[in-house]
Amino acid sequence: MNPVDVAQAAPVAHDMSLFGLFWQAHFVVKLVMIGLLAASVWCWAIIIDKTLLFARTKRAMDRFEDVFWSGQSLEELFRSLQSRPATGLAAVFVAAMREWKRSFEGSGRSFQSLAQRIDKVLDVTIQREVERLDSRLMILASIGSAGPYIGLFGTVVGIMNSFTAIAASKNTSLAVVAPGIAEALFATAIGLFAAIPAVLAYNKLQSEVGKLQSRLEGFADEFSAILSRQIDERIALAA
């Protein structure tokens, strides 16, 4: 067949705009595209939320440490923090102090394993805090790793579809093949568009979580050292 004849016989006007690419795509490809776009929205929501949360947590930690090491009495600090829900270092401090108070306020003074109990409480609180920071980061990891595959799935389905169309139309001119492949590749493009920020943000946020966690642990160790010294002094006084 003469390519000129073909071009004249089949003037298939393909809308090559972004919306045209989406609209002419196969049903499955459309679903994939919509899903990937939603994933992109979600992953950016998580990125923004987490970035803000980490910034806030870091600021709160700085402020708390300033106050903690300013020489203010622990009792006063505890009283001022007790009233409102605490996060970060404050939560760790409040949990440990609560356990400490409980041990002294009861009728029988239970010093024997107070240090161990405080350590346990600190561990649990740190775990809870880290969990709070860490939540939803796995979604980023999932989108980052699965996004390209989902996009590729859309592309493969789209290309399969366009090749069957080519086989049906018995015309292999590039002008006939190209629009279908462009549509199909658009799915991979969206997949990468969602996945690349997800992967980058996941790595960044994960390292932030690690830093905050080590900071919490450091503070907990120091605080538990202070408390155990106090306990030992009390035991010595009592004896």
Partner: peptide, 19 residues
């Protein structure tokens, strides 16, 4: 305190409109 969903949604809508 968690404006991510709205910011991200609006951002994507703007991006698609721009594209």
């Amino acid at each position: 305190s968690e404006p991510g969903f709205w910011v991200s949604g609006v951002g994507h809508v703007l991006l698609i409109a721009g594209a």
